[in-house]
Design a protein around this nucleic acid. Sequence first.
DNA 1: CTTGACCTTTCAGTTACTGGAAAGAATAGA
DNA 2: TCTATTCTTTCCAGTAACTGAAAGGTCAAG
Lengths: 127, 127
Amino acid sequence: MNISAASKAAGLPIKTVRYYADIGLVRAPSRSDAGYRTYDDAAVRKLVFIRRSREFGFTIEECRELLGLYQDKDRTSAEVKRIASKRLEEIEKKQRELQSLHDELAHLVKTCRGDHRPDCPIIDYLG
Amino acid sequence: MNISAASKAAGLPIKTVRYYADIGLVRAPSRSDAGYRTYDDAAVRKLVFIRRSREFGFTIEECRELLGLYQDKDRTSAEVKRIASKRLEEIEKKQRELQSLHDELAHLVKTCRGDHRPDCPIIDYLG
DNA sequence: CTTGACCTTTCAGTTACTGGAAAGAATAGA
DNA sequence: TCTATTCTTTCCAGTAACTGAAAGGTCAAG
């Protein structure tokens, strides 16, 4: 499987697949005589694993850890859970931040008349 | 006012104040003989304005626009409201994304036993 | 006069890619 | 077989919004 087939199968842009190889996250298992990266199903599975992990917002380094655990038959689920819980807390923190931002900004937007005149509670609040 | 006093008054790191000057967002109104940036109250007010805008998540370019409107006595509140509404929609979009991420991940974390054994619904889901 | 705090510029690094250029390799069609 | 197109390679640069560090000039206190 050349890189374009692998990238399609994994649901990732070619550039990204190459990037993941560069940083040693998921290397192509082999190269053709001409130097083309050649992927097999196992490599594609790893790419899919990374894509899903990234979709959850795990950083590349966390993905590296998770991929290590994915391939480690002696892993403990406690280790996986620790990483996932950390991410979950970050999500919850972000949610709280967004919520208060939302409430404040929504209030300002609601009270701004949005007409041709210059007076504006949004600007007043920021200034 | 030298840069450190201005940065304290504005609640921004010195590096950031210098950065904002570099990109032409808020330049120091003058320089001392030795070339030190010198800030006055009006400049500090602009820095505070930018800080608050950034806290709402407006991009630097949006901050530039907002600062322009802040200083424009002929602005219309409609223009301000348009920018703020756009940001509000982005926040709401992000909130929806985070909510579904949260629900999925929370479910996985809850069902993971987190013990010494390798079987793990989180890893299963990602793989 | 020296010490230490403060200021300057410039360069590099951060995250996770993405775009583009130049050039070699493979393939399909005439 | 020749050619046109597509695929691949590597390398370099850019993104957003800073942040850290290096190397050196300035200023106030003791």
